[in-house]
Simulated scan of single mutants.
Amino acid sequence: MNGMATKKRAEPEPLSKQDFEALAEFRFSIRRYLRFSEEIVRGHGLTPQHYQLMLALKGFPGREWATMRELADRLQLRHHSVVELVNRAQKQGFVVRAPDPTDARAVRVELTEDGQSILGRLSALHREELRRMGAALTPPAWGRTPGDGAATAP
């Protein structure tokens, strides 16, 4: 032991066979969607990472730009990896860097018109695939039973 007090976590409730099947099916659906995304994006000459970068920019809450730090968080990447990703996207004409007028240490990353255009086309295809997949991407209900704290229909 390292001398620090450790908290014991309550053991999670075991999964039933039905729970395993639901989890496996949900994971399969996620993977099918991601595979679709990878193929459609590559078919348009982009890497999946560039699509994710552009989507993170366009979908950033409340504005259409983000800092490197914010992108690193949104993409779950290290700062230096985001810098390299942005460098490559900038060389392809999808994004530009702009100084942040409120923080001299920060750089804003914004989509170009070309980036907006290709992102719009690809995202529309992704939306159609999500519509087609429908309930397959709904998380499992985990075999809830009345009285377990879950909301039940009247």
Rank of each mutant, 00 (worst) to 15 (best):
T67C: 02
Q49Y: 04
G62H: 07
G143P: 00
R132F: 06
T152V: 15
R9H: 07
L34P: 00
G134D: 11
H80T: 12
P154T: 09
A104Q: 13
I30Q: 15
G93W: 03
V107I: 13
R74P: 00
T145N: 05
L34C: 02
Y51L: 15
I118P: 02
R121W: 01
A106K: 15
T145G: 02
Q18Y: 02
P140V: 04
R32L: 14
G93D: 03
H126D: 01
V96I: 14
G115Q: 07
W65L: 12
N2K: 08
D103P: 00
D73R: 15
I30M: 10
V86L: 08
G149V: 02
F60Q: 08
S29C: 12
V41N: 07
L111M: 12
E128L: 15
R42K: 15
F20S: 02
L23T: 07
P12H: 11
L23K: 12
L34W: 08
V86C: 12
R42V: 08
G120N: 14
V109G: 05
N2I: 07
K8A: 14
R35F: 06
P139G: 07
L125K: 12
G45F: 07
V107H: 10
M54K: 09
E13W: 00
R32Y: 01
Q52H: 14
G149T: 05
E21I: 10
R32I: 01
Q116N: 14
V86W: 10
A10C: 03
E70I: 04
E128A: 15
V83C: 02
E25F: 01
M133V: 01
V107W: 12
S16E: 09
R69F: 01
S123V: 01
Q18E: 15
L55A: 14
P99M: 09
E110H: 12
R105Y: 10
R131S: 10
N2G: 08
L137H: 02
L130Q: 10
V41H: 06
E70H: 10
L55T: 03
H79I: 04
Y51N: 07
T145I: 13
R97H: 00
R127Y: 07
L125I: 01
Q52S: 15
D148C: 08
L57H: 03
R27F: 05
F36S: 06
G62F: 05
A66L: 13
H44F: 13
A24N: 09
R31A: 14
A89Q: 06
R108M: 09
E110W: 07
P12S: 08
L34R: 12
L122Y: 06
G93I: 01
W142K: 04
E113G: 04
A5N: 11
R35A: 09
R35P: 00
G93M: 02
G43T: 08
T67L: 00
Y33M: 15
P146K: 13
F20Y: 12
Q49I: 00
D73H: 12
H79T: 09
A151L: 14
S81Y: 04
I40R: 11
A89S: 15
D103Y: 13
P48G: 11
P140T: 04
R97V: 01
R32D: 14
E13P: 00
R131G: 03
R105H: 12
L130R: 15
T67Y: 00
G45Y: 11
